[in-house]
């Protein structure tokens, strides 16, 4: 039987004080994951004595454009990511991923911060956020620290968030004009499906049509979302007119398996991830050729 005291606040300062004062505090934001785990009394839930509701802290709901970064409050819902012009115009890859999450009801409550801190291997926003080189700002009573998101993730359902820290901002550097992005996802059906496999691709294509600064991050492919450096290097330096998509597909499949080893799902995921990287590259190449 799960039992806890309920705490709520509208101020970051007060939330940090609670985190400092009490031990075994679990944070509640949109609740779309936590309430399912509470209902199921999931073994994945850590032991906690206090539930701290942060869902009504206005400061954590802001989206801003500051110094070549877009800063997103952790309480920004998936619905807002889809509808916010700052996101739509700068990071369509994030908007596309948010659109594939859950259902209207889930997108209206679930938050970007929750998606990050839960650190599910299937978290839909993590591949695009890592590919965009997002950073997370963590705040405690002692101060703030900023970590690259990829470094913040420590394992499946694990992050480097300390017990006294709150995720207070997600910072994404703006991309220059010659960057292209794409998000691919395969689920059992569109609505409510957990990603069986997804892939975010962010890359630069220079004036000569050469790929540079490529970032490839699959979801549900590795124990937790991480970039694929071998694939990225294989794409960098190649012309959009000469790239061999079959070969890149094979490299991506092999790199995924080199991380995961052979698992029960490998016979399905190995060819499928090759299809996803090919589709993403095809879409970007088409877009780049249109822009020429």
């Amino acid at each position: 039987m799960i039992s806890y005291e309920f705490l709520t606040t509208q101020k970051i300062e007060e939330a940090l004080n609670y985190l400092d004062k009490f031990s075994k505090v679990h944070i509640l934001a949109g609740g779309t994951d936590l309430l399912v785990n509470l209902y199921k009394e999931s073994p994945r839930l850590p032991d906690f004595d206090y539930l701290l509701d942060i869902s009504n802290i206005p400061e954590l709901k802001i989206i801003n454009s500051i110094n070549k970064f877009i800063e997103i409050g952790p309480l920004v819902t998936h619905s807002r990511l889809i509808n916010e012009p700052l996101i739509k115009n700068n990071f369509p890859v994030l908007m596309e991923a948010a659109y594939t999450i859950g259902s209207t009801q889930i997108r209206n409550r679930g938050t970007i911060g929750g998606n990050i801190v839960n650190a599910s291997p299937a978290a839909d926003l993590l591949p695009p956020l890592i590919a965009l080189r997002a950073e997370v700002e963590l705040t405690s009573r002692k101060g703030k620290r900023v970590l690259p998101l990829e470094e913040f993730l420590a394992g499946p359902y694990k992050t480097k968030l300390q017990a006294n820290e709150l995720l207070t901002k997600i910072k994404i550097p703006l991309l220059s004009d010659n960057y292209y992005t794409d998000f691919q996802k395969i689920g059992r059906r569109k609505a409510l499906s957990i990603a069986r496999l997804s892939l975010a691709l962010v890359t630069k294509i220079d004036e000569e049509g050469i790929f540079q600064d490529t970032r490839v991050v699959p979801g549900s492919a590795t124990p937790y979302p991480q970039s694929l450096p071998v694939t990225e290097e294989a794409i960098n330096g190649i012309s959009i007119f000469q790239i061999n998509l079959e070969e890149i597909g094979k490299i991506t499949s092999n790199e995924m398996v080199s991380i995961t080893g052979e698992r029960w799902s490998t016979p399905y995921k190995k060819p499928t991830i090759a299809v996803l990287i090919k589709r993403a590259l095809e879409r970007i190449i088409k877009e780049a050729k249109t822009n020429e």
């Binding site: 309430l35 399912v36 889930i106 409550r109």
Partner: peptide, 8 residues
Amino acid sequence: AVSSCLIL
């Protein structure tokens, strides 16, 4: 629209 089973 929200799911009232997922809100405390």
